[in-house]
Simulated assay, not measured.
Amino acid sequence: METIPDLRSYGGADAYLRNCASREVLDFLSSKWVCLTIGALRPGTMRFSELRRRLDGITQKMLTQSLRDCERNGLVLRTVYPTVPPRVEYRLTDLGQSLAGLTDAIRIWSESHMSDIQVAQGEYDERAARAPEPV
C-alpha cells in the first residue's frame, strides 16, 4: 500500500496529519450548535432573539459563544445599529453561505436517516448486553 504524501509541502492541507491546521477548522465545525446556527442563518439576516427561538434548546451563553466563534472564523457578520437599545443583526458572509450548503446537507441526511441510526443503535445495544459467545 502506498503512503499518501504530506500535501502541505505543495501548498495544500491534509487533515489526516496531526499538526495540520485544518484539524482546528474541523473541530470548530463539528460543534452541533455551530452547524445549526449556520443553517438557521442561511435564509437571511436575523436578530439574536430570532435565532434563539429558532434554535430550540440552545442557551443564551451557547448562542453567544457560537456566534462569536462564527464571526471570528469569518462565517458570520455582526452588525450593530446605533439605536437605543442597540439593535444587533447577524448574517452569513459569503464564506458562511458556502458552508451553509454543507451543513444543510448533513442536517437533511440526519433527519432522513434518524430511524435507521436508532435501529442500528438498538441492535448494537442488544448485542452488547448479551454475554460474549465462545468463538
Rank of each mutant, 00 (worst) to 15 (best):
P86C: 02
W109L: 14
F48W: 00
D14T: 06
R87W: 05
D27W: 15
C70H: 02
T45Y: 03
M46I: 03
E89G: 02
L95C: 09
R54L: 12
P5F: 07
T79C: 10
L51I: 04
F48R: 01
A128P: 06
T59F: 00
G57K: 04
T37C: 12
V80T: 12
I106R: 12
T59N: 04
M1I: 08
G122W: 04
L41A: 04
W109Q: 12
R42M: 12
T79A: 09
I58R: 04
G122R: 10
A15H: 07
V84A: 10
E50S: 05
N73K: 09
L63Q: 01
V88H: 03
A129S: 14
S9W: 14
Q121C: 07
G96V: 01
D14N: 15
S49Q: 11
Q97R: 15
D6I: 03
V25R: 12
P85T: 00
Q118W: 01
R47G: 15
C35D: 02
P86S: 03
Y90E: 01
R8G: 10
G12L: 07
E111I: 06
S112K: 11
F28C: 00
L7P: 02
E111C: 09
V135E: 08
G57N: 07
D56A: 15
C70L: 15
N73P: 01
S66N: 07
D104W: 13
D14R: 03
I106L: 15
L41F: 02
V80R: 08
T3G: 09
Y10K: 04
G122N: 11
Q118T: 09
S22D: 13
T103I: 04
G44T: 02
S31W: 09
R8L: 03
L99E: 08
E133W: 10
